[in-house]
Design a protein around this nucleic acid. Structure first.
Length: 389
DNA sequence: AAATCGGGGCC
DNA sequence: GGCCCAGATTT
């Protein structure tokens, strides 16, 4: 049953894909945004540098273009070639990722660079299968690099493409549905096969989704859309209902008790998080995490101080703020203390705290050096102040 | 199939 | 206050 349905839809969509592919391609060439990763490597080049495409695609996963713009140029300047990235220290790669979130992407990109150097002679592969063998490169990213950097007729489906295609075909569905996903990929495949310029069509699809066919509750600018004539959602005025919103679970509530210990020279006591889980391998002030919001802050900070060898006479919350992530709501309560030598035992040698503690080794770090360490956004705020980025 | 993994912008 | 974003990997 599903096979028959798929073949019927596939036949119909291929015809429509032949109609809209050239419209999207020429629309994209006629005036797309000038984004840093769209700059061609040299005069006369027609395709982008594959390494730059790899970096950009890794950064752009689940991340808005405006946020990547702030980080992309500095990352490429720090690691100009795939060899530079392969040879870099992971802490430096992570540090350049600070603020972007999903930090595992940075570790995967780093590993991918090493694979490219070790197994592919330092050249980013052009075929989807080889690309997918790289860490952090899935179906979308492989298709994006193959098509955008090498003009291979490979399909891509991201949030933008899914929204555009579902609207054009008037499909009132949630884009994370498994059957819909397969339909999207086969439609995107037909689109890439229906043109001599798959790179422009694919990037045009995303550009369309990002600038014209925007998600609700924003209103799509159908009057400026190059494929409005072929759009079923526009015909039935159902743009705002497509795609159906995804269902998300409630955020887990977490209380974080952070202790910022300052030495007389201004250095701050930092610990590194474990290699697994959230903010893996990143630095922070000693912080205790508790499930829920009803936590005895005083008891928590006293225990934290004791585990560090820091004596606190009287504890008082210096600052509290909320940090929201997709699936967590974290309340940070920051305590401050001044070290008068009692924590020196912490400095003299690595000291491992209990396994249940969210951190391992503690050491004092001058603020100037701390600014170079990989830190999560809330911890960067605690260590460097809310102005620091 | 569901959970995990950030963070900010927008309405 | 909810939803989204140039997704991939693990369980």
């Amino acid at each position: 049953m599903r096979g028959k349905k798929a073949s019927v839809c596939g036949g119909r969509s291929r015809k429509q894909e032949r109609e809209i592919a050239p419209l999207i391609g020429s629309w994209f060439r006629s005036g797309a945004r000038a984004l840093p990763w769209r700059v061609l490597p040299k005069v006369g080049a027609t395709r982008r540098d594959p390494y730059h495409a790899l970096v950009a695609e890794a950064m752009l996963q689940q991340t808005q273009v405006s946020r990547v713009i702030e980080k992309y140029a500095a990352f490429v300047a720090r690691f100009p070639t795939v060899l530079d990235l392969a040879r870099a220290d992971e802490q430096d790669v992570l540090a350049m990722w600070t603020g972007l979130g999903y930090y595992r992407r940075a570790q995967h990109l780093h590993a991918a660079a090493r694979t490219i150097v070790d197994d592919f002679g330092g050249c980013v592969p052009s075929d989807v299968e080889s690309l997918r063998s790289l860490k952090g490169v899935g179906r979308y990213t492989a298709g994006a690099i193959a098509s955008l950097a090498f003009d291979e007729p490979a399909p891509i489906v991201d949030g933008n493409v899914a929204r555009v295609l579902l609207r054009v075909h008037g499909k009132d569905a949630a884009s994370d549905d498994a059957d819909i996903q397969e339909w999207l990929w086969s439609t995107a495949q037909a689109l890439a096969a229906a043109t001599d310029h798959p790179g422009d069509v694919n990037e045009g699809l995303m550009e369309l989704g990002a600038t014209i066919c925007v998600p609700a509750p924003s209103r799509p600018a159908c009057e400026r859309c190059p494929i409005a004539v072929a759009c079923a959602a526009r015909a039935s005025r159902s743009q705002m209902e497509i795609p159906r919103p995804k269902t998300r679970g409630a955020r887990a509530e977490v209380t974080c008790v952070a202790l910022r210990v300052t030495r007389s020279d201004g250095a701050v006591l930092l610990v590194r998080r474990p290699a697994r889980g959230m903010w893996a391998n990143m630095w922070q002030v000693p912080t205790a995490e508790h499930a829920g919001l009803e936590v005895d802050l005083d008891a928590s900070v006293q225990q934290l101080a004791q585990s560090l060898g820091v004596h606190i006479k009287r504890s008082r919350v210096a600052e509290s703020f909320e940090f929201l992530a997709t699936h967590r709501r974290m309340m940070f309560h920051v305590f401050r203390a001044t070290d008068r030598g009692s924590a020196r035992s912490v400095v003299s040698g690595p000291r491992h705290t209990d396994c249940s503690e969210p951190q391992s080794v503690a050491r004092f770090v001058l603020l100037e050096q701390a600014a170079e360490l990989p830190m999560s956004s809330p911890q960067r705020r605690i260590v460097l102040g809310s102005e620091a980025r």
